[in-house]
């Protein structure tokens, strides 16, 4: 039958072209550092952000990361919106009013720029006005804005070449794109004693997962003395729990529409499968009129 004839080249081409996509993700690295995959409750095709976890993650961001890193693509109002931490609006207004980093506004009627506390529509400013100020304060290192960090980092498909295509197919079918989260979690939990003979420069820390293993950021969440959660926070505090929560929070800040997108994904998929099936049978009916 001609469908089979059609499908054999089609399959070949599809699998083939798919492996191009694989290759696209398979960036080469000077030294391959394997990053373990972590279970994320927002991962895969079903995962959704858990507001309770995002609230814990925000607490870690606020108490740890915010000392150096801004989150300037996120606005205070986003903290209230569905799909995110969903804080109470009044609480966020109070949070904004007390935010340590002020908004530079102006000019006022005297022509002067002035500082004011942020409002709901303002971004979560970091402590530095610009990269130069940040570098001056941080011995030349630049703490990047974290708004997009989990999308701006990734992991490579480091399977051997003969497993590239199966691994890629698996990733596509399982909807895996949490590479950035995996990397960030590995980084936050990857501070170790440097191995024998490792030359660590002044002011740098050893990190198992950072490229080159020397990172200017000192261990942000200490092994002992992690950020304490409140009683009703839904998890007990630990370094790893802190790291997981703040990663989830930053994943949300990079991709705030994830919940909405995946929900639409499921309705779209169900609709498409039904319609495609109907179209298939309709096509069969039409072709039943002629020999083919």
């Amino acid at each position: 039958m001609n469908i089979k004839h059609a499908l054999s080249p089609l399959c070949g081409v599809l699998v083939g072209i798919a492996s191009l996509g694989l290759a696209a993700n398979a960036n080469a690295a000077g030294e391959a550092i394997h990053i373990d995959r972590h279970e994320w409750n927002y991962g895969g095709i079903k995962g959704q952000f858990d507001p309770v976890q995002l609230r814990r993650g925000f607490q870690v961001y606020q108490e740890v990361c915010a000392a150096c890193h801004g989150l300037e693509r996120v606005r205070f109002r986003n903290l209230v919106e569905p799909g995110g931490p969903q804080f109470d609006e009044e609480a966020v207004k109070a949070l904004a009013a007390d935010w340590p980093n002020q908004i530079i506004d102006g000019p006022n009627d005297e022509g002067e720029m002035f500082e004011r506390p942020p409002k709901l529509s303002d971004p979560l400013k970091g402590p530095y006005r610009n990269q130069q100020e940040a570098r001056a304060a941080q011995n030349g290192a630049y703490p990047p804005d974290l708004s997009l960090i989990t999308r701006a980092r990734g992991v490579h498909n480091d399977s051997p070449w003969y497993l590239h295509v199966p691994q890629m197919a698996l990733d596509i079918l399982s909807g895996y794109q949490e590479g950035g989260s995996d990397y960030l979690y590995a980084l936050l939990t990857g501070y170790k004693e440097p191995p024998e003979g490792f030359e660590l420069s002044e002011g740098m820390s050893y990190n198992k997962y950072f490229p080159g293993h020397q990172i200017a950021m000192a261990q942000p969440i200490p092994d002992e003395g992690a950020v304490e959660y409140q009683e009703n926070a839904g998890a007990t505090s630990s370094m790893k729990q802190n790291a997981e929560d703040v990663t989830a929070f930053l994943a949300w800040s990079a991709d705030p529409s994830l919940n909405q997108r995946k929900q639409l994904g499921w309705s779209a998929l169900i609709y498409l499968l039904i319609t495609t099936l109907l179209l298939y049978f309709a096509k069969k009916r039409i072709w039943a009129r002629v020999k083919h």
């Binding site: 609709y271 498409l272 039904i274 319609t275 109907l278 179209l279 049978f281 309709a282 009916r285 039409i286 039943a288 002629v290 020999k291 083919h292």
Partner: peptide
């Protein structure tokens, strides 16, 4: 595969349903 004799009414319903589904999606 061409042997099945179809009731023309039913055939049309299927085609119309499929077209309607596709149109609603679009």
């Amino acid at each position: 595969m061409t042997a099945d004799v179809e009731d023309p009414e039913r055939r049309d319903v299927l085609v119309i349903a499929a077209s309607a589904f596709a149109a609603v999606g679009a």
